[in-house]
């Protein structure tokens, strides 16, 4: 075991990471959704992307996550001063989005245990996160309410301790305790040196934002 790894309360130093994207363009057929969007985020920062429905917020986040290839522009994400390629970036980011779904035939615990094996993290991490977001572990994922599904998305996104969180309308469908729980998790993530890109129709949900991009048309 590494020196000190077993000590209570020990937190390893978080190496630096940085996200920089420039001139990101994306079209769907004739429809131009993103037209040269640029921005950056550093450890401890929140980059807020606002704009009305259809302005390209979700498309930008999907491009940043590596789920969509931009037609033009560059996206550079570095961890430990090492640039990650798209495949590595895709596996490193934490992603919360309304269209993110899980296996309805499996319980909440089984879903997280499956992804923990894929992410190469200990299954206990999933149980700890379920406890934090207040989800019953043995409930079938297919029977969750929309607010509970959003809690599961948060637990899933934080499972592998990502340094970059990409959050698409992250507080939708929450009741007050649910929103309070995930705001606490986001605050811890930022305090630990993580960063977040948040897409939201308005900035009303956020008290503290370091940078803002408005995609309003």
């Amino acid at each position: 075991m590494a020196d000190g790894a077993g000590r209570q309360g020990y937190s390893p130093p978080v190496p630096t990471s940085r996200l920089v994207f420039q001139g990101v363009r994306r079209r769907f057929g004739r429809l131009s959704v993103l037209e040269g969007v640029s921005g950056e985020a550093a450890p401890g920062q929140v980059l807020l992307v606002t704009g009305p429905n259809g302005s390209g917020k979700s498309t930008l986040l999907r491009c940043l996550a590596g789920l969509l290839a931009p037609d033009a522009g560059s996206i550079e994400y570095r961890e430990d001063d090492r640039p990650l390629d798209t495949a590595e970036r895709r596996r490193r980011v934490g992603f919360v989005a309304p269209d993110l779904a899980f296996y309805g035939e499996l319980t909440v615990r089984e879903n997280l245990a499956f992804f923990a094996r894929l992410r190469r993290v200990e299954p206990a991490r999933g149980l700890a996160l379920l406890d934090r977001v207040g989800l019953p572990a043995e409930r079938m994922a297919g029977t969750l309410s929309s607010g509970m599904r959003q809690r599961l998305r948060w637990a899933w996104a934080l499972l592998h301790r990502p340094r970059l969180l990409l959050l698409d309308e992250p507080f939708q469908n929450f009741d007050a305790p649910g929103e309070s729980a995930v705001r606490g998790l986001l605050a811890e993530h930022l305090a630990d040196g993580g960063m977040a890109v948040v897409a939201n129709p308005s900035s009303l949900d956020f008290d503290h934002v370091d940078t803002r991009i408005d995609l309003g048309r």
């Binding site: 789920l67 779904a101 296996y103 992804f115 894929l118």
Partner: peptide
């Protein structure tokens, strides 16, 4: 169809 592909794309080799 069940939209689990997004989570798989982000997590699996």
């Amino acid at each position: 169809e069940s939209q689990t592909a997004v989570a798989l794309r982000l997590a699996a080799t």
